[in-house]
Computed example of a mutant assay.
Amino acid sequence: MGKIVLSGPQNVSLDGVVQDPDGVEGFERGGWFAQFGGKNLEEWNKVALQEALRAEAWLLGRRSYEFFGARWRPRTGELADRLNSMPKYVVSSTLKEPDWSNSTVLSGVVVTQVSKLKQELDTEIVVPASYRLAHADRTRPHR
């Protein structure tokens, strides 16, 4: 049985800002990751690579899927190659045709879909960022 692992940090600032960690989206408080948490990106990349190598798959909400996909699809290198090739499961009721390699959309009630996924996989299923998914209402579909 697979094990769900919430990747830390969950990309949320202490004052509750979740969106736009790299500042690309233009939010007023965007860019906080590089400003406050990403000074040593080489070390961060080493940790991220080890986590990706241990994981059997990624589990994401739609927004995090779009965020990571836009940033990692065009890249190469050990971490990018791993993320681009590993299975990705996207919990969403709005995404119909995923455009990132090895991606599968899970629609319906979150707990039901994730429970099925845990039965199908054997090791770690990492939830990177995906703040809303980590705090999802277990009885309702996820957007």
Rank of each mutant, 00 (worst) to 15 (best):
E56R: 03
M1V: 10
R63H: 12
S13Y: 15
S115H: 11
R138V: 15
H135S: 12
V127E: 00
G69V: 05
P74T: 08
L121C: 05
W44M: 08
K96H: 12
R82D: 07
V105K: 01
V47C: 05
L41T: 12
S130C: 11
S92G: 02
N11C: 13
W44Q: 10
N45V: 13
Q50W: 14
K116W: 12
S93F: 02
K46I: 14
T112W: 10
A134R: 04
S101C: 08
K88L: 04
W44K: 12
S7M: 14
S7P: 04
P98K: 03
L117K: 01
Q119D: 08
S107C: 08
G69R: 00
G16Q: 07
R63N: 15
V91C: 11
V126P: 00
R63M: 14
R54D: 09
L49Q: 03
V126W: 04
R143G: 06
S85I: 15
V91T: 04
L59P: 01
G26D: 12
W44F: 05
P141D: 03
L6P: 01
W58D: 01
E42V: 14
R132A: 09
V126D: 00
A80Y: 03
S107I: 04
R29L: 11
G31T: 05
G26E: 10
R132Q: 11
A57R: 07
P87T: 06
T104S: 04
R138K: 08
E78I: 15
G61Y: 00
P9A: 11
V5G: 06
V12W: 02
V111N: 14
N84H: 15
L60C: 06
R73T: 12
P21F: 08
A129G: 10
N84P: 02
V127P: 00
T123K: 15
F27E: 10
G108L: 04
Y89K: 00
G8Y: 07
Y65C: 08
Q10M: 12
S64K: 01
S130Q: 03
S93V: 05
G8N: 12
S64G: 15
P87D: 08
R54S: 10
T112D: 15
S92H: 02
N40C: 14
N40H: 09
I4M: 10
R138T: 07
A70D: 07
S92R: 00
E42W: 04
V18E: 07
E51A: 13
L14G: 04
L60P: 00
V109N: 00
S13W: 03
D137V: 05
I125F: 01
L79C: 12
R29I: 09
P98L: 08
F36T: 07
A52M: 04
E124G: 05
N40F: 09
V114T: 06
Q35M: 09
P21I: 11
Q119C: 06
F27D: 09
N11L: 09
T123W: 06
A129F: 02
Q119P: 03
Q119K: 10
S115K: 06
L83N: 02
T76C: 13
K46D: 13
R75K: 09
N40M: 09
G37D: 08
G30F: 10
R82L: 08
V127R: 01
K116A: 09
A80G: 11
T76D: 09
N40K: 09
T139K: 07
V5H: 06
P98C: 05
A52G: 06
Y131A: 06
V24K: 10
G38S: 04
A48C: 12
N45Y: 13
W32P: 00
F36Q: 14
